[in-house]
Design a protein around this nucleic acid. Structure first.
Lengths: 111, 111
DNA sequence: CTATACGCCTAGGAATTCTAGGTGTCAAGG
DNA sequence: CCTTGACACCTAGAATTCCTAGGCGTATAG
């Protein structure tokens, strides 16, 4: 039924966004393109997931935003990581490592 | 706030349960113990997550159950994998591999 | 006889992502 | 000129999943 689409695992999106923003100031629309590009088209982030997530991250003080013009002259909301956001990203990455190793333990348990 | 607990990533639980049941017929209570044990106490599966998940998997035809006695003489509901369940498990494991590799691409993007 | 482990269950809340809509600008092609 | 598509933002509500917090009953150890 729904096994065909590359949906994003719930709880992972925040980390992915923080990680991409950590590469340098970037606006929302470009974040989704970048995530898709870096993941070699595996992740296809929907706008209805993207923007609420960005507002959530901003409300929690992990991202800060300001409006600027893009290279092509359009207005866009550029995000950058706050100090809190950087700590959060580190924590989430560590947790991801431990979690995926725990999953690996279960998946690879021979018999 | 909630950064201390080893919550299970949403969407992962079904795969973990299917994988443990694939090791041989086992009842619900033992499944949660086994997941905790194999993951070296990383995952602590709550009963309020476990039993609804088991019913879900049974309804989808991935698990089949029957009541039997445990070694200690108690009644318990033993689950085993169906053919459909085995296919589902394989699909979910493949998907997990691809997904975690896509995450790794993003987390390890230099710069 | 009382606390703990075993073994099952449910209702409701919290959190996250997706579907499906909407707005407006600009550039390219017919 | 005019329509299509990419760009760039937004929201409401559905769907899903997991957790919290209860509940039931039996057996065993202290």
């Amino acid at each position: 039924m729904t096994e065909n689409k590359a949906a994003i695992l719930k709880g992972t999106l925040d980390m992915l966004i923080l990680r991409v923003v950590a590469l340098g100031p970037i606006h929302g629309y470009a974040i989704s393109q970048r995530i898709q590009q870096i993941s070699k088209d595996y992740f296809q982030l929907q706008q209805g997931s993207l923007y609420p997530a960005l507002h959530r991250l901003e409300n929690r003080g992990w991202l800060a935003a300001d409006w600027r013009a893009t290279e092509t002259g359009r207005d866009a909301k550029f995000y950058k990581l706050t100090a809190k956001g950087r700590k959060q990203l580190e924590a989430e990455m560590e947790n991801w490592e431990r979690m995926s190793q725990a999953v690996a333990l279960i998946l690879r348990t021979a018999q």
